[in-house]
Design a protein around this nucleic acid. Sequence first.
DNA 1: CGTGGACCGCCCCTTACTTCA
DNA 2: CCTGAAGTAAGGGGCGGTCCA
Length: 250
Amino acid sequence: MDSTCDDIYSSAGLDLGLGFSSMGNQTSKQHGQVAAVKFDLGFEPSLNLSLSSGDHQMVDLKTENKDQLSVASSYSNGSVKRERDIGSEVTEVERVISCRVSHDEDDDASNGKKKLRLTKVQSALLEESFKKQSTLNPKQKQHLARKLNVRPRQVEVWFQNRRARTKSKQTEVDCEFLKKCCETLTDENRKLYKELQELKALKVGQPLYMKLPAAATLTVCPSCERAGAAQNSTKPRHLYGSFTNPSAAC
DNA sequence: CGTGGACCGCCCCTTACTTCA
DNA sequence: CCTGAAGTAAGGGGCGGTCCA
């Protein structure tokens, strides 16, 4: 952060026209098509940035200290529309300006392709927060970002990716469970089919002797023992191997 | 009160980079 | 050292919800 500001301060007096198309989804959405950026650097510790958004709107970014940044969106008639904390966006603006102004030799950094790896401590803290709750409100996000010394956008992205990983893992578990259920049911189906074939064979082989007790050849439900009665009942026989609990068919 | 636009947060898919076997 | 797979940070599009003119 300090080096970033140093870069900006050292560039006082420059008027830069910078395209912000590569600044990322969030920023471009929030500010529309930012056509040009001018920044007037006052005396420390005050920093003023003026963003011209291409239409009639002007956005003024102001700070008295680097942790408390606010934006005032104003229109050409002078009326202020909204004020809110946009610390993350300003940090991003500073970062991009810094890269373009003084680190052009570092191509990867300036086009944002260099990946910032989170430290183990940061990851652990994020993980801890995620265990408590998988989504954050803006205030919590800001707080966590400050605590970790990263941009709120990074916290947001980390939580998004973490939720995606959780969902993916859960899908894998569900898939595995359904696969086992399928195997169980296939097996059960095979057994029942075999049983049916045996009964058919018995019927053909002993056409005159039909007084076999049903329970002697049919599988009895261990819970209600209604297999014999089920033949005359309107209720179908119970199927073992249900999705939830194969042994709790009744 | 209904409507359209801006904004925002989230999900999903993808890309690009890093790490590790 | 090289390489492919796995992990992950981040980009970008789409969608639904909310606010406001």
